[in-house]
Simulated scan of single mutants.
Amino acid sequence: MKPTTRGTLAAVVTGVAVAVGAAATPAAATGTIPIPVPLDGLEKSLNMEVPKLGMEMPLIIPGAPEGPRYTEGRLLPDRTLPQVPINGGLPGVGLRAPLPHVLGEGFDHVGIDAPASGLRTLTPGLALVAPLTRPDPKHYGLPNTQMPAAGVLAPALQTVVGGDLGAGPGL
Rank of each mutant, 00 (worst) to 15 (best):
N47V: 12
Q83A: 05
G141N: 09
K2W: 07
G92Q: 06
M48C: 03
P36N: 05
Q158P: 00
L165H: 03
L90R: 11
P62Y: 10
V16W: 12
P131I: 09
E56N: 09
G94L: 11
A29Q: 09
V50R: 07
M48S: 07
L171A: 06
G163F: 08
L171K: 13
G15E: 03
T4M: 09
T80C: 01
G170T: 04
L42E: 07
Y70C: 00
P131T: 05
L75V: 10
N87L: 13
L103A: 13
G168F: 07
P100N: 11
M57S: 07
D136T: 05
P3D: 13
P51K: 03
I61M: 14
T80F: 15
A149V: 02
V16C: 08
L59G: 00
P143W: 14
P155Q: 11
T25C: 02
E105D: 15
A23S: 10
E105G: 04
A97R: 04
T30I: 03
T145L: 15
T8Y: 08
V152Q: 09
G170N: 12
N144V: 05
L39E: 01
I60Q: 15
G94H: 14
A23D: 04
P98Y: 11
G104E: 10
P124S: 09
A167F: 10
L9V: 06
T80H: 10
L119Y: 03
A24L: 15
V50S: 01
A11D: 01
P155R: 10
A130V: 03
A29H: 08
A149L: 09
R96T: 14
M57I: 11
D164P: 00
K44M: 08
S45N: 06
T123A: 01
R120G: 04
M55T: 02
A28T: 13
E56V: 02
L9Q: 11
H139E: 14
G7V: 03
P91I: 04
G54Y: 02
R79A: 06
P155A: 02
P65G: 09
L81S: 08
L128R: 12
V93W: 11
V50K: 03
L76S: 07
R134Y: 02
V20G: 08
A127P: 00
V110R: 01
T32I: 07
T123D: 02
L126E: 03
P143A: 11
P82W: 05
A22M: 10
A29E: 04
P51T: 05
A154L: 15
G63H: 07
R96H: 01
P3F: 11
K2I: 09
L122I: 01
Y70H: 10
R120I: 02
A97T: 06
G166S: 14
H109W: 02
T4L: 13
L153E: 13
G104P: 01
D136Q: 11
P58N: 04
P115I: 07
V50L: 06
A29F: 07
P36I: 11
G94Q: 14
P68A: 14
P58W: 08
P115G: 01
T8R: 15
K2P: 05
E56R: 15
P62M: 08
P155V: 03
A11P: 00
P62I: 07
I33C: 00
P137C: 06
E72I: 13
G170E: 13
V84L: 15
L103D: 00
T30Q: 07
G111T: 12
T8H: 09
D108L: 04
L99H: 06
R6F: 11
E43R: 15
D136C: 05
P62N: 06
G104W: 12
F107D: 04
T30K: 15
